[in-house]
Amino acid sequence: MVPLNYYLILGALLFSVGALGVILKRNLITMFMSVELMLNSANLTFLAFAREWNQVSGQVLVFFVMVVAAAEAAVGLAIVIATYKNRKTVNADETASLRD
């Protein structure tokens, strides 16, 4: 059996990759996918703990998160498309006009 720590470390790595992606990448779609990676690393962590506790509830939680992530994906992509229609770009720096 794979020990708990392995899953947690993998989860932390995925989370870091996702967080760095949001911070460093400038393409809105890539940033959005990085966020999904972060959500999935949280899911992995949930599942690892659920197995450790031998509980079903932790696995059910992951389904809730997946539903939320799907709803978020629908709205997020719609927002990106609306932006593309008006600006003809999905680069975060080129779409920015609001600033101090």
């Binding site: 989370f15 927002i79 008006n86 779409t95 609001l98």
Partner: peptide, 21 residues
Amino acid sequence: SDPRSNESAVKYFILGAFSTA
């Protein structure tokens, strides 16, 4: 159709989703 509203939504969405995660 207002680019400013689009940009507001994009920023809110990316940072909101990030904080959610």
